[in-house]
Amino acid sequence: MTTTQRQKPVFRFAPSPNGPLHLGHALSAFINQDMAKASGGRLLLRMEDIDLTRCTPDFETGIYQDMDWLEIDWEKPARRQSEHFGEYQATLQTLIERGLVYPSFMTRGEVKAEVTAFEANGGSWPRDPDGSPHYPPHDRGLTQAERGERLGSGAKHAWRLDTKRALDELGAKLDWAETGDGETGTIKADPAAWGDVILSRSDAPSSYHLSVVLDDALQGITHVVRGTDLFHATSVHRLLQSLLGLPAPIYHHHRLITDASGRKLSKSEGDTGLAELRAKGLSVAGVRQLVGL
């Protein structure tokens, strides 16, 4: 990277190649491109393909075709997260050695059963901003000997961030600079609202949270432009950035594209993909109009 490149604002569009891109992705790509051009900055493309089961080369090829059709000008080559698992694992190991993460052994079914039983007795189990219950505290309280015994037996596990311990170690309030469609200015981060998030699983060497903050730092991203569905997750990202000594980008969370019922568009729900719109003869100008630009 040259000195001139380093001085320019750096944006990134970071889809997951686990399905066809839809209008919501088009909006995000357009906003990233428009903001990069307006600031004289650079636009990078990242393939967030840590899910090796759902992400495929065909979907990745489809993304390149959609980007070309939308006339999005990005710097090649794209970064593939699947090619950097070693970097994520090395960073995770430093957090393990610092005692800031712990192995968690409960299955989703066991967590659900405990939460259901607790709430059936009138209790109110804490939930994260997405509505998922916090992970129970049992594994966080295991001794090193107990953890070692379970790990040594080959018990299936994930690695979770000990959020309270991490916040206690930092001893400082976290915030971020926001320029998006909702709240703007300095936003107070609240990582505790998420409980102990997963940083690595047996079927995925890195979680979204861990890989995204490392990638943004390694790629020199100065402006993170993404949908408002990730607004609250920024609290977790700011915590990880602070723990790892990484720079904090400026964040811009933009509106979402929704269907008639108000549900955000989703690849998993089979919403109309850009390739289908292209096949029907829609122009790039037409796409921009559909997403309100």
Results as ranks from 00 to 15, higher is better:
1 M>V: 10
4 T>G: 00
4 T>E: 15
5 Q>N: 13
5 Q>W: 12
11 F>Y: 14
11 F>I: 03
12 R>K: 06
12 R>Y: 08
15 P>W: 00
21 L>T: 05
24 G>E: 07
25 H>V: 03
26 A>E: 05
29 A>V: 09
30 F>M: 13
30 F>W: 15
31 I>S: 05
34 D>T: 12
36 A>V: 07
39 S>T: 14
40 G>V: 11
41 G>Y: 09
42 R>A: 11
45 L>F: 01
47 M>G: 02
48 E>K: 11
48 E>V: 10
48 E>L: 12
50 I>L: 15
51 D>H: 08
52 L>P: 00
53 T>K: 13
59 F>K: 07
60 E>V: 06
60 E>L: 09
61 T>Q: 14
61 T>C: 12
61 T>D: 13
66 D>F: 00
73 D>H: 11
73 D>I: 06
76 K>M: 10
76 K>A: 15
77 P>H: 12
80 R>D: 06
81 Q>E: 11
84 H>P: 04
84 H>T: 08
87 E>L: 14
89 Q>T: 13
93 Q>L: 12
93 Q>H: 12
98 R>Y: 00
99 G>C: 09
104 S>L: 09
107 T>D: 06
109 G>K: 13
110 E>V: 03
115 V>T: 06
119 E>H: 05
120 A>T: 12
121 N>I: 00
121 N>P: 00
122 G>P: 02
128 D>K: 03
128 D>W: 06
131 G>Q: 07
132 S>H: 15
134 H>F: 10
136 P>R: 08
137 P>H: 10
140 R>I: 02
141 G>A: 13
142 L>K: 11
143 T>N: 01
144 Q>T: 12
146 E>N: 06
149 E>W: 01
151 L>V: 08
152 G>W: 02
152 G>L: 02
154 G>L: 03
155 A>P: 02
159 W>D: 02
161 L>W: 03
166 A>K: 02
167 L>Q: 13
167 L>N: 09
174 L>E: 10
179 T>P: 00
186 T>Q: 14
187 I>L: 05
189 A>Y: 05
190 D>H: 13
192 A>Q: 12
194 W>I: 06
196 D>I: 01
201 R>T: 08
201 R>N: 07
203 D>A: 07
203 D>H: 11
205 P>L: 05
210 L>C: 08
211 S>V: 04
211 S>Q: 02
213 V>S: 10
213 V>T: 11
214 L>K: 03
214 L>W: 04
216 D>G: 06
217 A>N: 03
219 Q>Y: 01
220 G>N: 04
226 R>V: 07
231 F>H: 13
231 F>C: 09
233 A>K: 08
235 S>T: 08
235 S>N: 07
235 S>K: 04
235 S>I: 09
237 H>M: 01
238 R>V: 14
241 Q>F: 00
244 L>K: 00
244 L>Q: 01
249 P>V: 07
250 I>N: 13
252 H>T: 15
253 H>G: 02
257 I>T: 05
258 T>F: 01
258 T>D: 00
260 A>N: 13
261 S>V: 08
262 G>R: 01
268 S>R: 15
269 E>K: 15
270 G>M: 09
275 A>C: 05
276 E>D: 15
277 L>N: 04
280 K>H: 09
281 G>Q: 04
289 Q>M: 11
291 V>K: 10
291 V>N: 08
